[in-house]
């Protein structure tokens, strides 16, 4: 890496050169797809033309904008479900890391819950929580619970022994050990669990919508599919991808900010920020 800043035009050119082959390939694939459907090589009922998908996207997202309501409903279900699941999981994990007997007697139930496919509960959850958003949130919470619970518990329990020794020999209290040693050590694993949990929460929300619902992207998806409107159905799938990307990257962002010490550049930035606050305090 040279220290000289690259001029902006150079950078744009660089990005262009990097993305051009991808764009060309994408265009070729789309073109071949379009032509093979247009000439009848592929039945358009099963695989719609790219141009048909594009016009469905334009219709759903721009001219009519019907998708946004469903989009935000599903997003809310996934996020709220995840928040509940994560809250319960983290508090149970903390409790079982602090109190040994609790861990021993909770573990069997956690394992049983884990080996049961959470999706199997869908009809029962719908019977319990109704056709509205409640059942989707509940399913999302249930199936996002386990990865978060396991990762948090593992992170809290598996602490570097030398460090623990150091803490003990310096006479750290239990609260200090938890706050300064166990919790920070658990954070990276916890966030890995959060990422898995978010993905599964989205799956839970969508599957519950398939089973029974009136609003949400999953409903839209199955409705379009059974009308054999494949183009609109694929356009709806796009919004699930977008939700997935939003959820994943916002968690990635939080991961970067909160677990800043894992990445060199972030660590440097955090320590600079601290130095600034200390300098400001010293001035006063």
């Amino acid at each position: 890496m040279s220290d000289q800043p690259i001029p902006l035009s150079g950078r744009i050119l660089d990005i262009g050169v990097r993305f051009l082959p991808h764009l060309v390939l994408f265009a070729v694939i789309i073109g071949a797809w379009e032509i093979s459907v247009a000439t009848g090589l592929i039945t358009s009922i099963i695989i719609p033309r790219p141009s048909a998908i594009w016009s469905a996207i334009v219709e759903l997202y721009i001219t009519e904008g019907t998708i946004y309501r469903h989009f935000f409903i599903t997003l809310t279900e996934a996020v709220v479900g995840f928040a509940i699941g994560a809250g319960v999981a983290v508090s149970l994990a903390i409790a079982s890391s602090l109190w040994d007997p609790f861990r021993r007697y909770v573990t069997p139930y956690a394992v049983v819950l884990n080996v049961t496919p959470g999706i199997a509960l869908t009809p029962v959850i719908i019977a319990w929580f109704g056709y509205g958003m409640g059942s989707k949130i509940a399913l999302a919470a249930i199936i996002s619970f386990f990865p978060i619970f396991v990762n948090t518990l593992t992170g809290l329990v598996q602490v570097d022994e030398d460090r623990e020794e150091l803490f003990n020999s310096l006479g750290a209290s239990n609260v200090q050990v938890f706050r300064k040693l166990r919790a920070p050590a658990a954070l990276p694993l916890m966030f890995a669990g959060f990422k898995i949990g978010l993905t599964t929460a989205l799956i839970g929300a969508v599957v519950a919508e398939f089973a029974q619902a009136t609003d949400g992207v999953g409903v839209l998806m199955s409705r379009f599919s059974f009308q054999l409107n494949m183009a609109a159905s694929l356009a709806t799938l796009l919004s699930m991808t977008v939700i997935g990307l939003i959820l994943f990257y916002s968690m990635e962002f939080l991961d970067d900010r909160i677990v800043f010490w894992r990445r060199e550049s972030r660590r440097a930035a955090a320590s600079r920020a601290r130095a600034r606050t200390w300098a400001a305090q010293a001035k006063k």
């Binding site: 695989i47 969508v206 059974f226 699930m240 997935g244």
Partner: peptide, 19 residues
């Protein structure tokens, strides 16, 4: 990357309609 973000199970109705 795009495939990874999409919940794969969500394609289920589409596949049922197609096949």
């Amino acid at each position: 990357i795009v495939l990874e973000a999409t919940p794969r199970i969500a394609v289920a109705p589409l596949l049922i309609a197609a096949l």
